[in-house]
Nucleic acid binder design. Structure first.
Lengths: 242, 242
DNA sequence: TTTTCGTGCTCTGCATGCAATTAATGCTAA
DNA sequence: TTAGCATTAATTGCATGCAGAGCACGAAAA
């Protein structure tokens, strides 16, 4: 009982972190937030895992004080859940949560698309079109991994194109939680063709400065994505955890 | 130099808080968040005020540790700004920020209205109609204060009617920041008639389960509100602080 | 008089220590 | 064997202590 303790919950991962390169001279709590967020959405800290302050602080090489500040912030983002006098736990997404999450993202991205149609510069649009071209090349080549990366960047560019910090912040927070579900979804390939076509239509609406169309198309795109993800999520696991 | 220190920034308010009634046995940091949020949106802690940890913790009757956790959370909400090795400061809203804020709120409320049109129960709608009737009575009577309270409750009911936690959370956070601006706006009476009429139209769209109309009307309503607020905000102060 | 450098103080950032609460464990009794 | 209870270990919540960074003030030089 001395090498690994697991008093309750599921097996604890030996995290082993720190050794940040020359990134930024930020506060420790901020670095801890970024690190932990990456570990959670990356799956290293699986849903339902207990986050024991002592263990985590040792693994991160910091004391409990900045770690606790980081945990509070992650809880505000919805990535973990705090319970009084209990170890925080990585949020376990129920299917209902995922549906709500994509409803919210869809609504927010529609708003950003409408604003972006009016506000994106020609350079922004050129960049977007370049990414679209690249994405279609990967699509033809059947390269799935780069497609996801580009997809992420494209959505990010549209959100940024809205020039609206509150919407961007809200979107980013929700997007991180959505990633939690995305990585568990099966059959992601099924909607690939559709998705690429939808992206093309969205781009064309933006280039036409057609705010209504861009917003509507992006809303539908995200809604479809969420539905497909949910469909790939539900069959294996009934209603909640995998 | 011993009774009140003001080494930099503007005069420091002697806050004098604590003495929470029998509300809830929550963590101190949570209570501090609620207390400080109330003080900020209520104007007791004015925009630009320095929040010195030592003074605040003494005023709240807690130590710096939970206070710092509370400050981090308020910063995530955008109510205060943290600067490295400096006292946090109550966020000073520039007019551009206010415009962006209302764009975001409008987009989010539209999404909630569309969902609420499909999901609100008949009881929900009855409650909403009762509030509308009450609001119109106050309108006829010329009672401005209760109108604002009811306005707040009505918007809250619609957002809650969407049955979407992420949208509600995002909305609440943005709404708190919007309150910051609202209390500084002049000529709020000008749009009173319009606003009541718009609320009636929104209610009717919800009762007709017309999601598109409800969403569009609420979007426009919030947009108009933001524009009116901005108009009452800009003339006195050029671009930023009052 | 204006600018620059030095000095001291205040405040933040982080680490550590202590008390309270909780869950697990083993014992006792029916 | 099982239910109930006391004990014990572990973990959170909070307070405090200490080092470093930054600003203000003042002195000295141009």
């Amino acid at each position: 009982m001395e090498e690994v303790r697991r008093p309750r919950g599921r097996p604890r991962k030996p995290v082993l972190l720190q050794a940040e390169p020359g990134l930024a001279r930020l506060g420790l709590h901020e670095r801890a937030v970024q690190r932990l967020r990456g570990l959670i959405v990356g799956g290293e800290l699986p849903a339902g895992a207990d986050l024991v302050e002592t263990d985590l602080s040792a693994a991160l090489g910091i004391s409990r004080t900045p770690l606790r500040e980081a945990l509070k912030l992650l809880a505000a983002e919805g990535l973990i859940e705090l319970r009084p006098n209990r170890s925080p736990r990585v949020t376990e997404l129920r299917s209902g949560d995922v549906a709500a999450l994509f409803e919210a993202i869809a609504g927010i991205e529609r708003a950003t698309a409408e604003l972006a149609a009016r506000r994106m510069s020609e350079a922004d649009l050129a960049g977007l079109r370049a990414l679209q071209t690249e994405m279609e090349a990967h699509h033809r080549a059947g390269a799935l991994a780069p497609y996801f990366a580009l997809n992420h960047r494209i959505h990010g560019l549209i959100v940024a194109g809205a020039r609206n910090a509150p919407l961007k912040d809200a979107h980013d927070a929700l997007h991180a939680r959505a990633e939690l579900a995305r990585r568990r979804a099966l059959g992601r390939r099924s909607r690939w063709d559709e998705s690429v076509a939808e992206h093309r239509a969205i781009l064309e609406a933006l280039e036409a400065r057609d705010a209504d169309a861009a917003g509507r198309l992006l809303l539908e795109h995200v809604t479809h994505t969420g539905a497909a993800l949910l469909a790939g999520l539900c069959p294996p696991a009934a209603t909640d955890a995998a």
